[in-house]
């Protein structure tokens, strides 16, 4: 542990130590955000002049703590932890969850159009959470979220974050602050104690994952209502788009539902009967053809023990096989022998 608390640069980052209540120092690396010129399109464009990119964020850091850390430099607009973008499961019980859920509703359909649709939805999710559902009539039901207690989410150690300030000057001030400090900066302590650590954190996590039954019912009912609404809306949209009655089940005169794969007719949207996947169908048809083919040629078989030479040949082969096996066993035992396995004791 080096005692020197020098602020140095490393690969263009300012490295500076922060300190919790004890002596150990945690290094943070920051630099002004530089917009990437590469083709990573899905990355959100951060405002270049007022964003700081921070590396090696402590795993238990919260947005509030980082805001407090830079309080002297200016107001922080928002802090985005990059780890959250990678795993969506991190924020589990929040209300935002049901939003993204609804957007993924169509993910089970395998057809290309659906998948594309989903992709579009995903894209819009990352931007903002209000999905414009222009095609549907009526009011889209709102999902009642489950009650949420704020708690600290723990992320991978050494992750990164983008810190967006309100104005560009605070950004420069922040970088300057870091450069000037030759003592470790004290990590701010959240006095409000909104997000406890350790045991208290686990207690609140335990409690918040067990919401009252009423809330669960409301949440479940509203989520299902939402799902039904979306389903109906999609059906309606499909129906409008096509001159065929796409999305409607195809019913014949006897009242049987015809189940057909793909195409414009009778594609069962959302519910109803699943149809065997195309892969399976392909295999099936291939298999049927193959069977037909196999049945035909019978002449390939030759009588194996007709001529005397064949019998001899067979005998000889068995003997050779015998010997081969013998040699094989011998080699195996020799190998074991060399590993001194046969020293009984």
């Amino acid at each position: 542990m080096p005692t020197k608390s020098s602020v140095g640069t490393i690969s263009g980052f300012f490295a500076f130590p922060v300190q919790y209540d004890n002596d150990t120092r945690h290094m943070l690396y920051i630099r002004a955000h530089v917009g990437s010129s590469s083709k990573s399109t899905k990355k959100v464009d951060w405002p270049e002049d007022r964003t700081i990119f921070m590396v090696n964020v402590p795993p238990d850091a919260t947005e509030r703590e980082i805001t407090l850390l830079f309080k002297s430099c200016g107001t922080v607009e928002r802090v985005v932890f990059d780890a959250d973008g990678l795993s969506e499961g991190a924020d589990t019980d929040s209300g935002a969850e049901s939003e993204s859920d609804a957007d993924e509703a169509g993910s089970n359909e395998t057809s290309l159009t659906q998948a594309l649709g989903r992709k579009r939805h995903r894209f819009s999710t990352t931007g903002s959470t209000t999905a414009p559902n222009t095609g549907s009539q009526g009011q889209r039901p709102k999902v009642t979220p489950l009650p949420v207690v704020p708690f600290r989410s723990l992320r991978r150690t050494g992750h990164t974050a983008h810190i967006v300030f309100l104005d560009a000057s605070s950004c420069t001030r922040a970088l300057a602050l870091v450069c000037q400090h030759d003592k470790p900066i004290q990590w701010p302590i959240d006095e409000d104690d909104e997000c406890p650590r350790g045991l208290a954190h686990y207690v609140s996590l335990y409690e918040s994952s067990r919401p009252p039954l009423d809330a669960v019912r409301e949440h479940a009912d509203s989520a299902i209502a939402r799902f039904d609404f979306d389903l109906a809306a999609r059906k309606a949209a499909l129906r409008r788009e096509s001159k065929y009655k796409k999305g409607e089940a195809l019913v014949d005169e006897d009242g049987f539902t015809l189940v057909v794969r793909g195409g414009a007719y009778g594609q069962a949207v959302g519910g109803g009967v699943g149809v065997a996947s195309r892969k399976f169908m392909d295999e099936y048809t291939k298999g049927a053809q193959g069977k037909k083919k196999r049945r035909k040629p019978k002449e390939g078989k030759e009588k194996a023990a007709f001529y005397a030479f064949q019998i001899h040949e067979k005998k000889r082969n068995t003997l050779l096989e015998l010997k081969r096996k013998w040699e094989q066993d011998k080699a195996a035992v020799e190998k074991l022998k060399s590993s001194r396995k046969f020293k009984a004791y």
């Binding site: 993924e104 993910s107 089970n108 479940a220 799902f227 389903l231 959302g270």
Partner: peptide, 24 residues
Amino acid sequence: SARWPDDLVAIQKMKLAFLERLAQ
């Protein structure tokens, strides 16, 4: 039952509804 939703997320919500009912 054929009346389960054909969607993974909705199934989980349906389970919630079932469990709530069972609890009551």
